[in-house]
Design a protein around this nucleic acid. Sequence first.
DNA 1: CCGTATAAATATGTTGACAATATTGTACGC
DNA 2: GCGTACAATATTGTCAACATATTTATACGG
Lengths: 220, 220
Amino acid sequence: MSEKKDQTLTTKITKTLREGIVRGEIIPGTKLSEPKLAEQFQTSRGPIREAIRCLEVMGLVKHVAHEGVRVITLTQEQVVEIYHVREALEGKAAALAAINMTDDEIEDLSLLMHVHREHQSNTGAYMQSDGDFDFHYKIIQGSKNRFLIRQLCEDLYHLVRMFRYRSARFEHRASLALIEHEQLLFAIQQRDEQLAEMMMRRHIARARDDIASNIRELRS
Amino acid sequence: MSEKKDQTLTTKITKTLREGIVRGEIIPGTKLSEPKLAEQFQTSRGPIREAIRCLEVMGLVKHVAHEGVRVITLTQEQVVEIYHVREALEGKAAALAAINMTDDEIEDLSLLMHVHREHQSNTGAYMQSDGDFDFHYKIIQGSKNRFLIRQLCEDLYHLVRMFRYRSARFEHRASLALIEHEQLLFAIQQRDEQLAEMMMRRHIARARDDIASNIRELRS
DNA sequence: CCGTATAAATATGTTGACAATATTGTACGC
DNA sequence: GCGTACAATATTGTCAACATATTTATACGG
């Protein structure tokens, strides 16, 4: 699991901080003080600063010269914007997956789908966030487009997870998500790239609409 | 033009190096030596290292622990992958622009279009790269989606420019590009988001096909 | 002559200290 | 009592030096 390569403090600190920010353990708006972090990680400020620069480019913290960096606070409006990008990118991923996934990979995806279906009919519960991510992750990987994979997995998904950790209620019902996943799987099995893209886009657009409608709800 | 904010060595070095890499002045594959860069920028290695970390996250250089960083070399296959992402993102940008651009902004875009048309009928020349970028840039900004704008302008476009600087021949004929731009403008004027997205996607997909067919050509 | 093993040299990773800027606290005047 | 000006403190930005790992050079053996 944990690859011991990149054995450098900067990378380890970056990952630790990133995870802390994404999971909400470091509250949004918190100022990341270099001396405190250096104390916390038992290191000097050098690697801390480099890690912070990485987080800055990733968009997880905002940096102001001579003032410091603060963890970003995602407004629901911003999440809607992010979901527009997610719709476009994952839609493309689904289209490419319909073309480029191997039969074995599709079979694997089908198996995962079956597990989810069983789980739901047994418990009737909302789909677990991890399960949903697994499904999407396999499709993204199936696109075989390394640049797309990087954009989605290394950049965008941290923000999506950051949002989900704070408001788990927005995962729409497992029953609906399950149907959407089944439709998507079908399209990929048919090697229908256009249908796959459309299904994925609708799946994500619906989640986005849930968020957008919640914003309107709060305004009244 | 040059905002004097962010007056910190790291940001200035980052921008300078980024521009050098994008313009091809720093040859792909070149190793970025920290001591040499420190000498070159008349500074210490601290800011250099931070700048390099930024370039690494941006994807312009590849870092191997304890070895150093090298400027990435874009293969045409990778550019095709990038253009798939570009198609998805800019397609979405066009759709959002059709919804969110103000009438004044559309008028401004129409004016730019007219200038390009005049220029072409006068010179008959291929469209200038800058002109093409201007057009796309205005549409991206018109999406009003800050996250999308950031993804396209701060990340993806550096790679696109990097590719174009080395192989300008891939800009397809101005006559075709002009028609595609006109169709796109029309769709935006009609506030037809679906058509705008489709036109933008075809426009970029055609450019991608040019690159892909060139790869096949080289194989024979 | 080629390959391996060892040693020198160079580069990266990390540290602590100094300089410049911003924040906090305090006193003064209105 | 409130706002402003100044001083003290703390933090960020930068630098030079040390520690560790890799690359290059050299010498030895086959």
